[in-house]
């Protein structure tokens, strides 16, 4: 148990950060990350060391977040946003953003803006971007995790990125 506590201390920020990226809710992210640690304890014998412990743990927390997001989806009524999800809504027709948001913003400020932008994405779009950009998963892996086709993953990822680009450029500092 002492050794496990040490593992928690070492990886807790990363596991929490992944849960927070996906859920955008501090309390929910804490609960899910703690649940992930309890699951990891129960399945510790299954960890074969094929990947790093950190990678194994992030997959556990991702699966828990995906389950939670599915529950959210079932609970809420179909929104216009959800209907637009596959078609990309307005993002497809938005003009290309030529300004690089990372150029003129301080890291702390950029981080706050990314936070806001991520919060404005739909859960499906955000999940696609988190799994691809932060977890480094390939399209087919994301499709399997999100239980959808590779084409859907590509669309979600594309529209998520486009919306992010617009949101970040809208929030940029005036020159």
């Amino acid at each position: 148990m002492v050794a496990f506590e040490e593992l928690v201390a070492r990886h807790r920020d990363k596991i929490y950060a992944r849960a927070y990226s996906m859920m955008r809710n501090e309390e929910e992210a804490i609960d899910l990350s703690q649940e992930a640690w309890v699951k990891a304890w129960q399945r510790l014998k299954q960890f074969q060391g094929e990947s790093s412990f950190g990678t194994w743990m992030t997959r556990i927390v991702i699966n828990l977040c995906l389950d939670q997001l599915r529950r959210h989806k079932r609970q809420r009524a179909e929104s216009i946003e959800a209907m637009d999800e596959e078609s990309g809504g307005v993002e497809r027709h938005m003009p290309v953003v030529t300004v690089n948001p990372t150029e003129r913003l301080e890291r702390v400020e950029l981080r706050q803006r990314i936070d806001q932008a991520l919060s404005q994405l739909s859960e499906a779009h955000r999940t696609a971007i988190v799994l691809h950009e932060f977890e480094g998963m390939e399209y087919k892996e994301i499709a399997k995790a999100m239980e959808c086709s590779i084409g859907t993953v590509m669309s979600r990822l594309f529209y998520a990125r486009r919306k992010m680009a617009v949101l970040l450029s809208d929030l940029k500092k005036p020159e």
């Binding site: 807790r12 920020d13 990363k14 929490y16 950060a17 992944r18 927070y20 990226s21 501090e26 804490i30 990350s33 290309v96 953003v97 030529t98 690089n100 948001p101 990372t102 890291r107 950029l110 981080r111 990314i114 971007i129 950009e133 932060f134 990125r161 486009r162 992010m164 680009a165 970040l168």
Partner: peptide, 21 residues
């Protein structure tokens, strides 16, 4: 360029997130 910029903006974002408790 836009797609690459967005990727670049997101790089390192998560590593700065810390557990509040």
């Amino acid at each position: 360029a836009e797609l690459k910029n967005t990727r670049a903006a997101l790089a390192g974002y998560e590593s700065e997130t810390k557990l509040p408790e």
